[in-house]
Amino acid sequence: MVRTPRFIQLQPVDDARQMPALWSGLQAPVARVSPKYFYDALGSRLFEAITELDEYYPTRTEAAIFDAHSADMAARLRAHVGAAHDLIDLGAGSCAKAAKLFPLFAPRRYVAVDISVDFLKHSLECLQRAHPDMDMLGVGLDFSAALALPAALYEGPALVFYPGSSIGNFAPDEALRLLREAHTAARGGALLIGVDLVKDKAVLDAAYDDALGVTAAFNLNVLRHLNRIAGTDFRLADWRHVAFFDPERSRIEMHLEARQSLTVQWPGGERRFAAGERILTEHSWKWTRARFDALLREAGFGDVACWTDARDGFAVFLACA
């Protein structure tokens, strides 16, 4: 019998409830917008285009590491948990990265977690047809605030899968909090996570400010998204994309910079921006292997294994809970 995926929205997706925090960010001394607002329908397509750029190495580098070493990863997982485990995919999106693990890792249950189950429905329904015997569950959850999965959703032990170097969007203290929650969610299983490593500044700068301007369009699209959901009146032509690696803080900073003095208005408020003033849209922290290994151990993980590309620019860690 062919199974049907189940879907659970743990948190309501309600733009109106998020508006006070969004407006507060715009009025902060250093204006800021959460990077989650990148990902409306157009933003998601633009990010897919970014992954095809010559300058943007993380996606293809991580994929090459999995191609070369996933059999070893699967063997290490089986040695720790045995044959039976669930797979929890954080920020699952299209579910394509997790699906590539199915043949070797053979999970008994797949739990796809994203901010909205609506994003997951088509992907999971297609995936279910390809794997008719697997139990599949789509979970709507904004785990950037807290990774809290109800005990009844899955049995465990679980492999918590967090690819794509998305952990870089969390400041080190926030990353530690998320890793501790992932340790709890694994229920004696493990964490498989992709991590972008510190490298030459020119390489990092180019990855976030490509020659074709696709990343600039991706960044500017956040203003279009805010106009739609928050009633702001941003004019995209008034802003420019700025991105750079800060070696002292070991992070990429991505901003939108006002080309001239202007005022942005929204229902019940406004903000005056001077020429050259910026809105912070993203931080992306870069790690060394040693620092991230130490972070995993501080979060409670042990028996940490690591695989990198030939240039030691990207790492995939498997850490046992």
Rank of each mutant, 00 (worst) to 15 (best):
H131M: 06
H131A: 14
P132F: 09
D133E: 09
D133Q: 10
D133T: 10
M134P: 02
D135P: 05
D135Y: 03
D135L: 12
M136S: 10
M136H: 07
M136C: 13
M136P: 01
L137I: 15
G138E: 00
G138T: 13
G138A: 07
V139I: 14
V139T: 11
V139D: 06
G140S: 04
G140K: 02
G140M: 06
L141W: 02
L141K: 02
L141R: 03
L141C: 01
D142L: 07
D142Q: 08
D142A: 04
D142P: 07
F143E: 10
F143T: 00
F143D: 03
S144M: 15
S144D: 15
S144C: 08
S144E: 14
A145G: 15
A145N: 14
L147C: 15
L147F: 15
A148H: 15
L149W: 13
L149D: 09
L149P: 03
P150L: 06
P150H: 06
P150N: 08
A151V: 13
A151N: 08
A152R: 11
A152Q: 14
L153C: 03
L153G: 02
L153K: 06
Y154W: 03
Y154L: 02
E155D: 15
E155F: 06
G156L: 04
G156A: 11
G156F: 03
P157D: 08
P157V: 04
P157G: 03
P157I: 07
P157K: 07
A158G: 12
A158D: 00
A158C: 01
A158M: 00
A158I: 00
L159R: 02
L159C: 05
V160S: 07
V160Q: 01
V160P: 01
F161Q: 01
F161C: 01
F161S: 00
F161G: 00
F161N: 06
F161A: 08
Y162M: 05
P163V: 03
P163H: 03
P163Y: 07
P163L: 08
G164R: 09
G164W: 09
S165V: 13
S165W: 03
S166V: 09
I167W: 03
I167P: 01
I167N: 08
G168S: 11
N169G: 02
N169C: 11
N169E: 09
F170D: 05
F170K: 04
F170L: 14
A171M: 12
A171Y: 12
A171H: 11
A171N: 11
P172M: 07
P172W: 07
D173R: 14
D173F: 08
E174D: 15
A175Q: 09
A175H: 14
L176A: 07
L176R: 04
R177C: 10
R177D: 14
L178D: 01
L178K: 09
L178A: 11
L179H: 11
L179S: 06
L179R: 07
R180P: 09
E181G: 02
E181A: 14
A182S: 12
A182I: 00
A182H: 09
H183E: 15
H183D: 05
H183M: 08
H183R: 10
H183N: 05
T184M: 13
T184C: 11
A185H: 00
A186F: 02
R187S: 08
G188P: 01
G188A: 10
G189A: 05
G189C: 10
G189W: 00
A190R: 02
A190M: 04
A190E: 04
A190Y: 09
A190Q: 06
L191Y: 02
L191K: 04
